[in-house]
Design a binder for these strands. Structure first.
Lengths: 234, 234
DNA sequence: GTAATAGTGTCTCTGAGACAATATGAT
DNA sequence: ATCATATTGTCTCAGAGACACTATTAC
């Protein structure tokens, strides 16, 4: 073990990603974990992350995130947002370390590669599935951010890709918020978004689980969030 | 100049604070800056900040913030919240550096010490008053956070201390949001907060600028935010 | 009394919650 | 036709915006 290089900079600053997706089959949110190939915690499942200090390959934090997405995630991100930064002397057994962590969403159903796997978000956030470092806490913080932001924005639609239906929107909002959402409220919101130029009816339909087919909408601004002026109540 | 110590760790991670207060006389929000005593930018006015890597005096980031408050701010903080982390190769002329920055609010009218001074927030956020590093941008980000969070929470009340009146609440909300706020809407919100146990009528009164005296309210939970279920519209 | 500001009452309007009523496909 | 789900319509309710009206102090 290269003890000397550790002493050179007894400090680590990493960027870590909570990459989430919606699995229709399991009807749950899932988080992407990767199997670590280096110590500490080699072979453990953990958040994809890279070290940003100690090298000059990245010019900015955002560059570091891009490098992380390319090298370890390998999927297009429909959304990404910085959630926070934690740091202390204990979280990494090697030294004092900080982590700047992000919430990201993938909409396509990209198949994970060999050392990648999707886990149920709820089990990871609740630490039923234990991750190394303080990664469970980071995941929990991202889940909270997702929940709070889903109260007043179109964020959950990021899970659905560019073409989706009203019933799908109801489903994903209910799942994210952890409580039933009335389809009538959802439609009202989708109508608002359409008037604001965020959505457009495609004229196409897709088949749900039996019953009448669902009219689909196209997301004209898949990169931007729409902010509703009232929160979902509880 | 200790060139050797810089080479030891060509990376800096700092914690920086945007400490805001409400100045009744000037009727404006102000930000605390301190005069730097070391290079780079010695004698320039900048955000209070400390380096968190390269030493082990702090056990956590929060400890570092506490040390910063004690050593360079010296005032009680009514509120503090992490806003974000930026990092790149350019912001500090010495090396690659990151800053984790916080929005903080002081309610008491503590007089600044010799190397401290309050500047108008608007001028600093707009870079009419230029700060070293990317501190103007950090201030701007904190201002945006303050504004967005003031749309749907009781955050602006943090500026007023534990005893305040409804007209004062109207004033501070109007100032923070940058637009008039109706006293009737404000009173409705204060009523909601009272019902939720956050506020209580004191029975005392205070004199405003002539006219009828103002009944005062006591903030029973000065450390916690109350979240309204609707935003102020615009 | 007047001036000036504090505090109350009432109306409209928007959007969420609830739920009934109707529409459209598969079988 | 029947079933299952999609879509529309209607009602209530909470809270913001607006503004008129009353109350309380100083002078």
């Amino acid at each position: 073990m290269p003890r000397s290089s550790e002493e050179k900079s007894a400090y680590l600053h990493t960027v870590d990603l909570c990459v989430l997706r919606y699995c229709r089959d399991a009807h749950e949110l899932q988080i992407l974990l990767i199997q670590r190939d280096a110590e500490p915690f080699a072979a453990h499942w953990a958040l994809p992350g890279i070290v940003v200090n100690g090298s000059t390959v990245d010019l900015t934090l955002d560059d570091a995130v891009r490098r992380l997405r390319t090298s370890k995630v390998g999927m297009d991100l429909a959304y990404i947002e910085q959630v926070g930064t934690v740091g202390d002397a204990f979280r990494d057994p090697r030294c004092w370390s900080s982590s700047t962590f992000y919430l990201a969403i993938v909409s396509d159903t990209a198949t994970p590669s060999e050392h990648q796997r999707f886990f149920p978000l709820s089990e990871v956030a609740s630490a039923a599935v234990k991750l190394p470092f303080d990664h469970n806490q980071l995941v929990s913080a991202c889940q909270e951010r997702l929940l709070s932001k889903s109260m007043y924005s179109s964020l959950p639609l990021m899970f659905l890709g560019t073409e989706f239906s009203a019933p799908e929107a109801v489903t994903i909002f209910s799942l994210v918020l952890g409580r039933p959402v009335l389809k009538t409220s959802m439609r009202q919101r989708l109508l608002k978004m359409s008037e604001a130029g965020y959505l457009e009816e495609t004229g196409r339909k897709k088949q749900g689980e039996g019953g009448r087919p669902q009219a689909t909408l196209e997301n004209l601004q898949p990169a931007s969030l729409y902010l509703f002026d009232r929160s979902f109540l509880d």
